[in-house]
């Protein structure tokens, strides 16, 4: 099946006082119809900036997409006119944001905000759109949906707001849903509900999902493929089972080591990765993870590894074979 969404060599820079921060460095990925992929990494590794760049939602200035293409249904989102990309946003590709507290306009009613995409993309009247919005709110599990259309965001709890946000994102039945850490700001019990909700809607509506998170556990049950990002690079990509069973990049190994697992000795110590993720002001000529890597060899300090295929549906950007500790 052909790719629905294909991003190649995406580069995003942010101008700061210290220089240009290289937030996204040649990221490529693809998404098939109805497929769910996960993008995983620490805060600040460039996951959100990557997807925002493809929809041209990063604040410009200071941000700028400097290279790459984002082909959606044969057209490059990065080269579209403002008017063209406007028709993609919210109708073909929708986003659910991390913080349901700040992502709603506090002075407009929920109904108005949820119905808005229908009014602008499908040319519905306000009344029609509101009717549809009520159905959508019911679908995401808002009780008394019709009565709540006239409520304001502050009258909803965090979990309810995230449900509303999902309704708002899916109201035009988009092909792609980008979920940018949609559960990070929520209680653990609510997290599970939201994940279940999105799974159910995916089965009902059949959209593809790009799920961004720093929580490997969430992705495991949700996505087919996972990409791990570090320092603005994708450093490993594999099918979920493969990635969790045979992680090849020391960073992925570190991330998995910091997770508690049900099938393991309960007394195992959780490990952490020392140090902080880098802020890159230039393209490094060494592996960006080398400063924190316990496997680092001389080669890692001399050349930044590129992604290479090491198995079926498994690519990694690392010089070292972690099973032997030697160069692969």
């Amino acid at each position: 099946m052909a790719d629905l969404f294909n991003v190649q060599g995406l580069e995003t820079r942010f101008r700061t006082r210290e220089g240009y921060v290289h937030a996204v460095n040649g990221v490529s990925f693809h998404l098939k119809e109805g497929e769910t992929v996960g993008i995983v990494g620490e805060s600040g590794c460039g996951k959100s900036v990557t997807v925002m760049s493809t929809l041209r939602l990063i604040p410009t200035p200071p941000g700028k997409v400097t290279a790459g293409q984002a082909i959606y249904q044969g057209k490059d989102l990065l080269k579209m006119s403002d008017e063209e990309i406007r028709h993609v946003r919210g109708s073909q590709i929708s986003m659910v944001f991390q913080d349901p507290m700040t992502s709603f306009n506090p002075v407009l009613t929920i109904g108005r905000q949820v119905a808005e995409p229908l009014e602008i993309h499908n040319g519905m009247s306000r009344a029609q759109a509101l009717e549809r919005a009520a159905e959508m709110l019911k679908m995401v599990g808002i009780p008394n949906a019709k009565d709540r259309l006239n409520d304001y965001p502050h009258q909803f709890s965090g979990g309810m707001r995230q449900r509303v946000m999902i309704a708002m994102a899916l109201i035009c039945t988009p092909q792609v849903l980008i979920a940018d850490e949609p559960t990070t700001a929520l209680d653990v019990t609510i997290q599970a509900q939201i994940i279940e909700l999105i799974k159910r809607l995916r089965d009902e509506l059949g959209m593809a999902i790009i799920w961004i998170t720093h929580d490997l556990g969430i992705v495991a049950g949700l996505a087919k493929r996972v990409m791990v990002m570090y320092g603005g690079y994708i450093i490993e990509e594999a099918l979920v089972k493969e990635l969790y069973g045979h992680p090849q990049h020391p960073y992925t190994i570190g991330l998995l080591g910091s997770l508690p697992r049900m099938d393991e000795d309960a007394h195992r110590r959780l490990t952490s990765i020392d140090g902080l993720p880098p802020v890159l002001l230039e393209n490094p000529n060494y592996c960006p993870f080398a400063p924190r890597c316990k496997f680092a060899l001389d080669h890692c300090w001399n050349e930044n590894p590129q992604l290479r295929t090491i198995g079926p549906d498994h690519t990694v950007a690392c010089w070292v074979d972690p099973t032997t500790g030697k160069e692969r």
Binding site: L57, R86, G90, S94, T102, S103, N105
Partner: peptide, 25 residues
């Protein structure tokens, strides 16, 4: 604000983003 980004992500014209979402606030 985040909700302005949300409005843009919904595909609103910039003019509507300002007049409908930003101005009142």
């Amino acid at each position: 604000e985040d909700y302005i980004r949300t409005a843009r992500a919904k595909g609103l014209r910039e003019r509507l983003v300002i007049t409908q979402h930003a101005l009142k606030n």
